[in-house]
Design a protein around this nucleic acid. Structure first.
Lengths: 183, 183
DNA sequence: ACTCACATGTAACGAGTTACATGATTCC
DNA sequence: GGAATCATGTAACTCGTTACATGTGAGT
């Protein structure tokens, strides 16, 4: 039940059409809640049917024509309710860790390459986040909204820092393993 | 496509019945790939139909009677293939970060309590992992299998360390925020 | 016989993914 | 007017979740 609220947040930040939302989900919000355009259109339909958003007036809704949405008061209320509601953290689910565990049984052949590839990807993501931090959150800027958004970005940076650190450690261990494939 | 491989790994470590698997998923493997008994039974049926596992002989399959499975050579081969195959890391998906972003728009009322609750949960999980580390991976024990399983546990420990650290930081920020709810 | 715990399974639903379809606009 | 692009939308499928159903065996 998070996608509708992700969309409400995005629309409150700025009313948009489906495709614009899709683009924005590819960037900022998508960093921690990704969505495809099919999901977004489906959800926009539901949100409108539920009276939480509406199409901006002065727009005629035809098939191939852009339709922009804005959040209604009921939508803002629902978002506030959801934000404050207590929610269980979802248990971790990571295929790479599963593969490591499987490798303990069927051998590590071929796994090292993918670990290196993942390390590269996480390094790149970390660099991207750090760029954003430098660009969007310079030392002076610290209104309440900035503080909160910076906090979210911090989580991304710390997470990628964790992954790169752990992957480097894992690769060191791999190098020492008897049957491990060499670099 | 990870659940079948999680099951194959578990069955290779030790042939089991559906309910035994469910129990084991609540513990070790479930720490990074959880599954309910319905998922497991459904998947066991598919794996058997695909010829990757079989019920242990000398067991008559009746409705309320336990049925133990073991992995066939084809299953082991499939698991090795999957383990070595290159896979994309799944993008992060975290509702708490989403809620923080939403709070930047609709206000932080009520969120602080849940942050504190999450901090407690992650602290507990971290303590549990550290217990397991002390118990299962004492300094002397370091065969190849131990090294790999220890590596997986390390990931869990480092991840929980990240979360507890970040949540503490977030709560500090919250305390300084103008409209934030007090502790 | 009754109940409870064990063990396996069905059914319905919700969310996410993939592939494809269709209408409008722009540019050559 | 044909092709490419923008924009919205459908359909089918997989995976995970929730609630419930059914059968077995052990204890009292």
């Amino acid at each position: 039940m998070s996608l509708p609220h992700a969309i409400l947040t995005a629309l409150l930040e700025k009313p948009s059409s489906g495709l614009e939302l899709t683009r924005r989900f590819d960037k900022s919000i998508g960093y921690f809640w990704s969505a495809t355009h099919q999901q977004i259109y489906r959800e926009l339909g539901k949100l409108e049917a539920d009276g939480l958003i509406r199409t901006l007036p002065a727009e005629q809704p035809a098939r191939g024509q852009r339709k922009s949405y804005e959040v209604l008061p009921a939508g803002r209320a629902e978002l506030a309710r959801w934000t404050a509601a207590s929610q269980e953290p979802k248990p971790l689910r990571d295929a790479l860790l599963l593969r490591l565990r499987a490798a303990a049984v069927v051998g590590t052949a071929g796994l090292g390459d993918d670990l290196r590839r993942h390390l590269e990807l996480h390094e790149r993501q970390l660099a991207e986040y750090q760029e954003i931090e430098k660009r969007d959150f310079p030392p002076g800027k610290d209104g309440p909204q900035d503080r909160l958004q910076h906090l979210v970005l911090r989580a991304g940076i710390d997470l990628e820092t964790f992954w790169t650190g752990w992957l480097r450690h894992a690769l060191e261990e791999f190098a020492e393993l008897p049957g491990a494939d060499p670099a």
